[in-house]
Design a protein around this nucleic acid. Sequence first.
DNA 1: TTGGCTGCAAATATTTTGCACTGGC
DNA 2: GCCAGTGCAAAATATTTGCAGCCAA
Lengths: 145, 145
Amino acid sequence: MQNSAERLEKMIHKLRDHDHRITPQRLAILKVLAASEGHPSVEQIYARVKTDFPTTSLATIYKNVSLMKSLGEVLELGFSDDSNRYDGNNLYPHPHLVCTHCKKIIDPDLSMLPGLTRELVQETGFRILNHRMDFFGICPECQDN
Amino acid sequence: MQNSAERLEKMIHKLRDHDHRITPQRLAILKVLAASEGHPSVEQIYARVKTDFPTTSLATIYKNVSLMKSLGEVLELGFSDDSNRYDGNNLYPHPHLVCTHCKKIIDPDLSMLPGLTRELVQETGFRILNHRMDFFGICPECQDN
DNA sequence: TTGGCTGCAAATATTTTGCACTGGC
DNA sequence: GCCAGTGCAAAATATTTGCAGCCAA
């Protein structure tokens, strides 16, 4: 997790390095991705960008998220039940904790995770390159309803 | 992982207990789910059922998989890159260890997993209902190539 | 100036739903 | 015989693509 202005800078540089243009709509999308508050879906990015650029189309969001994904500047969280969610702030695999009621997604700290991976390596001999770890449940707020 | 005939029996009982009928198409779908070889997708179940019942429709597969899901007799794996995959043989969430080279999938034992879940509950106050945990890497055999 | 980008619409893919008919019980 | 289940088609959802006009570089 880093500061969102830094992430934005890095994204812009990456685009320039690959000869992509910085349009106002693209910049607005980048800003949402750089912050990635609540791990936005395409639809949520769309809604936020629309407040500044009302004529923006969903296709533009898809195209830009896709582009950033292909440049390795966005992590696709791989949730299929809903529409997909994205993280442009934390590019490395990390556990997610999803409230199935209010759809909020938290990034928990799990001190035991490195130990778990170590156990897995010792048991199987695999070289682990990547993982996906998501827990689903009800958050404290939604438990009161 | 249990024997597929036992699973089939249990599924049929569950259906009867809930006043659902055992139609030939439904039985054919149950058999595929009870075996769950290769973690079939809806499309794959459809293909297999069609060899015995060529008039079967995709909607019927969806309806039945949905029904068994709601009865807690199939696990939706949530591999979102493709279409969804199902496991009617091992009903409880379990980690997958996928070799990205030879595509083999192992179900590892992780003694630290319950502790990890406990840590998560203590840290966040969530009521955990489910999880999804998949590791991707290279298996020992493929590391020699 | 110009080719990449946007925005609209149409296409595609996946899953769900409506409804008349069929067949398990 | 009753009504849940099936199969067809149409609808809903999510994402991609084609293309004319626009604008960042």
